[in-house]
């Protein structure tokens, strides 16, 4: 028989491995979402750079396909959660509030131009990434802060090619970040 100190150490080992398994599962799903959004954001920025007149349609399509992809991901990977349905509704409300607040800031309180919009949405998105990382894992924080920093550099120092810069920084960053998360 073992003493209570050894038993505590064994339970701590169990807690640690369970935490890592759950984080690994979360990273698996988050990496698919990040790569999916990365591809869409890359395409959205390329359209914005090449055909600015169609940018608004491109970004509506990006948002619809992005959220649709997350819904599909969730349907194929149902949560093992005692309040799964309530959790799903909360997730949907998160997106509604996210886009409503962003729209309020960019179109009602402020009247952002294309360049400001091109910087605001990635920074806003990455803020949530970084905040989520404080609970769910350092990879989210690293991706959030990294893309935010590169977005600001582009905003202040890149000229006409800013959408192209954002295609690689935001779209490419999410793709690389997602693949890196998968390996973490």
């Amino acid at each position: 028989m073992i003493d209570s100190k050894e038993a505590s150490a064994a339970l701590a080992d169990i807690d640690d491995i369970v935490r890592r398994v759950k984080q690994s599962q979360l990273y698996d799903l988050a990496s698919i979402a990040a790569v999916w959004w990365g591809v869409l954001v890359f395409a959205g920025n390329v359209v914005t750079w090449l055909w600015p007149v169609y940018a608004v349609y491109a970004w509506v399509a990006v948002d619809v396909m992005g959220v649709g992809g997350l819904v599909a991901l969730r349907l194929f990977n149902p949560p093992h959660h005692p309040h799964g349905a309530a959790f799903g509704i909360r997730l949907l409300l998160v997106f509604v509030l996210f886009f409503a607040f962003g729209y309020l800031c960019t179109n009602v309180i402020g009247h952002f131009g294309p360049r400001q919009l091109g910087a605001f949405w990635p920074l806003y998105f990455m803020l949530f990434y970084a905040l989520a990382g404080l609970w769910f894992g350092y990879a989210f924080v690293a991706i959030g802060l990294g893309i935010s920093a590169l977005t600001l550099i582009g905003f202040f120092y890149i000229g006409e090619a800013f959408p192209l810069w954002m295609a690689f920084v935001n779209g490419g960053g999410l793709i690389i970040g997602g693949l890196w998360m998968r390996r973490s």
Partner: peptide, 17 residues
């Protein structure tokens, strides 16, 4: 199960559905 590595294996597998 008590062996440390086997404990970790079982803990990891038990954390899954």
């Amino acid at each position: 199960i008590h062996q440390p590595l086997r404990l970790k294996i079982m803990a990891a597998l038990n954390a899954l559905p």
